[in-house]
Design a binder for these strands. Structure first.
Lengths: 217, 217, 217, 217
DNA sequence: TATGAATGAGCCTTCATTCAT
DNA sequence: AATGAATGAAGGCTCATTCAT
């Protein structure tokens, strides 16, 4: 993974030069889409940022909307790849849960583009994501892993039983994602800066306590 | 701010006819902005939906962006007005908390426009909201009320002590708002419909349990 | 007729100013389309020629292709209106036929735009014309009138019997239209100028002789 | 002219492979130009149809417009080659004339690309053809042959005297070419299919009768 | 000879905004 | 107060053509 995982298959058939151009366009598109949204993003701007010709964007991706989908898929894949790298099985249930909570908050904070992408995609009622086959496939293993941790915790008597893994994963996403996604409006209405490392650490401690507190038997 | 302020403020100085036109434009703008976002919304479409002339839109609001701000302020004000109507003081701490959690989920589900508006505004780093004086003022009383409930619960021994009311309120918002805001992508990646009343009721029960479970001493 | 017969109905509902703009766009479009064809015509150029804003073109006609159809319909309607004004019934059969032949050659020569329009439309396999309801309706009366002349001539013993009016009308069109439509390539391959009034008069005499010579019993 | 000249001229100096590529481009260009016209034709599409690289097209022909000229010249040359093969001298004057009429209709019907090419070239006022030295040279012999037939017919008392061979040849072209070139619009306005073999045979009989009927003394 | 990648100009269309009435 | 017409500046996309290999 790591390197942004070029829409597999294509990379191998492209010349190094074309592949590099493609990647620069993807990088630029991610920035532009995250900053301006799908409707607000400008194709000219993406091309300029990529140091590429606009025509190349169309040669590689066909349209602004198809480019959006590829960017979205890559963003999901990248996050899931990092998340998957957490070896939940080797940790105590509490530790595993804390790591998941922490990872999601920290990843989101490190990658605010991701939340913007998701918000936009939801504005479009997931019209693009629903055409993706690869993204949903990324989440089945995650739910299974989470189910395992919950079962283990319940068996060990450290977690309450009967917790729905999907609901809990949504909680984990929500507690981190919402904070980051809404940091600007929240900062405004609460007259506080939520972007600082201190604020983030406080949030991390708090939401870890929320999840673990809830899971107590 | 200034002339971009709340509908009520101006209503008194406008003729009934002008006031009605203004209101129809606001209603239409809310729908259009919520559906398409700020960049995606079309001024023509708003005017058409409002059954008004485009020129009127400019006469009343000056520009698309100022219209956006007014719509946003009204959306915040409306939600807070309903939330304020919950008489937290007359309820047990647990009941008060459950009501807050429930209200926020249900309101958001009833008004998905609101989440779209917030997402868009965050995309713009709260650039418009930060020009509003009205909205932040709506949240100080809320935090005070919440602080009261937490203190009461701690004093009665039913809540853990030391809970930060702002963090908790963000949790409450997050657990409901994120679910609704991301229902399309979540439905896609989890192969489930999250829009149904049954799904919503399940979510309501779950997040109430999360908040109250966490608050246990 | 005369004045280019604005796509009826609409004219009455448009303000004089809008109607004038619309007409200027139509006039400009006819020139541009005739000179460059549908694909070669430039919307910018049409707007500029019309002294209008490009946006107006879209407000009135929706797209370049819809504009094309309107221009085409008007061109047909205009020619048929003039042709219809020939009172065939009051003439001897020979005279009526000669007038039809002559009119078609002269009209085409006066309106070379018309042949260019038709050629383009045929290149597109009549894709636009086939969406028109008004144009085909213009030709039924013509065929009836021609059938009447042929019958009269046969009855009087001056025309051969059994002549198909459609085939004959196509001949009349062909003998005039082809000459004008292909005057540039014909001039080139025959090393002669076919555009002059003298050449046109010679052609007129010749094709009249052809048609009447053929019709002899 | 020069390097844009006929395929044969260059074929001898090209490698077999290059020659084959050149020919495939010409074939593809004929199809594309005939379908879309000069402005509507796409260089990418021609190269793709030819299974060749776009760069090859430029290497062989220099530009889209020069390619157009070569295609046009070849089309003329091909038609004239077939027409020349009719041994007019060995036929009776009537038979010779009938053969010419028939050939022109049938050739045009078999090669509708040719009429599209001519129409486009006329749209451009023969700008490309006028740069050709080859094509006009093809038509002098034809006129001479036709003049011979007419003289023979007049001498034998079967044709009227004084017929201008050029005018008559234009008639022959017109009666066939116009029908084929305008078959789409004619079918539309006359509510009839003119493409069928039956329709074509009827046209053939009719225009033969027209020409021979006219030529009667 | 042949190719894939790249380019810049330009095309059709749309937008937020303003003018004239 | 309200309207229809008009505008100029992009915006997404495509084209003929050329470069680098």
């Amino acid at each position: 993974m790591g390197q942004a995982m070029s829409a597999e298959g294509e990379a191998s058939t492209l010349s190094p030069r074309a592949s590099a151009t493609r990647q620069r366009i993807l990088d630029a598109a991610l920035v532009e889409f995250a900053e301006k949204g799908l409707a607000g993003a400008r194709v000219d701007e993406i091309a300029a940022r990529a140091g590429a010709n606009k025509r190349m964007l169309y040669a590689h991706f066909g349209s602004k909307e198809e480019l959006w989908l590829v960017v979205l898929e890559l963003a999901y894949a990248k996050k899931r790849a990092e998340e998957r790298a957490i070896a939940l099985e080797g940790l105590t249930p509490e530790e595993a849960m804390a790591r998941l909570v922490s990872f999601n908050l920290r990843y989101t904070a490190r990658h605010p583009e991701f939340v913007n992408l998701l918000n936009q995609e939801n504005l479009h009622r997931a019209a693009y994501l629903s055409r993706s086959e690869q993204v949903p496939a990324l989440y089945s293993p995650l739910l299974e892993a989470l189910r395992g941790v919950l079962a283990r915790g319940a068996a060990e008597g450290v977690f309450r039983p009967g917790v729905d893994p999907m609901q809990l994963y949504i909680d984990i996403l929500a507690l981190g994602h919402f904070y980051v996604a809404n940091r600007h409006t929240l900062s405004t209405i609460f007259h506080q800066t939520l972007d600082s490392e201190a604020a983030l650490a406080a949030r991390e401690a708090h939401i870890t306590a929320v999840v673990l507190g809830y899971l107590r038997p």
